[in-house]
Design a protein around this nucleic acid. Sequence first.
RNA 1: GCCGGUGUAGUUCAAUGGUAGAACGAAGGACUCAUAAGCCUUAAACAGUGGUCCGAUUCCACUCACCGGCACCA
Length: 481
Amino acid sequence: MREKKTFFISTSIPYVNARPHLGHALEFVQADIIARYKRLLNEDVFFLSGTDDNALKNVRAAEAAGEPVADYVNKNAENFRSLLRDLTISNDDFIRTSTDRRHIAGVEKLWNSCKKEDIYKKKYKGFYCVGCEEFKTEKILVSGECPEHLGVKLEEIEEENYFFKLSNYKDQIEKVIVSGELQIIPEIRKNETLAFIKGGLEDFSISRSKERAHGWGIPVPGDESQMIYVWFDALSNYITALGYAENSEKFTNYWQEGDERVHVIGKGVNRFHTIYWPAILLSAGIRLPSKVFIHGYVTIGGEKMSKSIGNVVDPNDLIKEYGPETVRHFLAQHTHPFNDTDLTIGRFRAVYGGDLVDGLGNLVARIMQLAQTHLSTKVQDLTAPELQKEYTEGFKSYRIDQVSDHVFREIRKVDSEIDHKKPFSVVKDDPEEGKRIISDLVKNLYHISYLLVPFMPETSKKITDAIIANKKPENLFPRKD
RNA sequence: GCCGGUGUAGUUCAAUGGUAGAACGAAGGACUCAUAAGCCUUAAACAGUGGUCCGAUUCCACUCACCGGCACCA
């Protein structure tokens, strides 16, 4: 028996054809908050992030930029890595699918570990758009042409690829989802997945010809003419990062014998995580993830962020102007964890001014000023608060927004308490009573800083440090005009 | 087209078979420890129609509006 529960959590690995946008930041922050909460509960957490370097879109973007693919991918992967750092994301590891040996070895092992009858060669025929370098389903075509490359004739191409026999796993996957062995959050995504399964599952291709992949990616073991296609490759990062290839202790600890295995993903990749990925794992005799948490998107002015609309928000700009803690707070409390949330810069500013400048920042200033002036030493016997139901239950249901809202309610309560108890007046007539009130306020502030640990780790630490030093800190969130 | 969801104060969201809560915004007030912050008070809403029920915002049906999914999109 291990002394601590283990908790594995991952972000999806984005493809790196461009700089990260605010949607990526949302996923990183959500996963980080959960990871930090679990650490607060003293669980043994392994938090993984990384990049999907091998996607064909990367190749295309690199060629469009006139750069070698490896250089282009390295540069963008670094942008993602630095965004994680700038948002103070506490990932324990960062895997890259092109440069990490453990990944390449792991993918090969996973391919070879799938049941022989589940991987087979089949001719695939489809309409190929040379603009996108992708097969298009007839459904999305606009008068027989690719909607993104109108006027360009589609080619009907036939190619032989490896396929995965998804149809073999229909019943098993349905069963684990219904039973909750594989939990899908929220319910609406679970229903979508089940509806999809009900409609019947077709086998999916897991390789591309080497030419079409432009020689980029991981070759199919034993068949150099084919490259492993993105899904089989990318999804496997969750276990290859843990050392699946050499069957490491980490892999055993966090995955095969782990207590919880959670993937945080966007709604666009639901199917791949709740159907394809479990099927591959079942075929290879590997344990399934226990939870898939599916978030919505950040929209800008009601529209999806896209380069063509020109409304892409670079999280780095927001971080530069407002600081990482503000971005974290906004994404945590003012986006719905499951649904799409619209962002306007006005709303962002209002949250900064209201919650952080006038709310948290001001509360810290008023309490610590009182403490610094009237208390001769720092407050003794500071203890962690008992976590309230709103906090723990909120986390259990992944309503990060509601948990954060609860914390900010506590902040308002303390503000109200100061006004009612008037320590600044009491201390003049009855110094002992005044000091008692002030040290209680400091204890309340300490509790708040504790509750903030998952959300705003830096701010939490600054508050704690100020309490220990018994000194009013610099303005945590300066007013902006 | 098929399947699923949503429609609550100006805005973003919550709850509930029996006085509908909060935040932001708005109006007023008392205070001064604080980042001209904070506190207190007030105004303000159940998409529409019909049904079940003693009673519906809550359950059901329909209408309207919006959103999501419907296979190779991290």
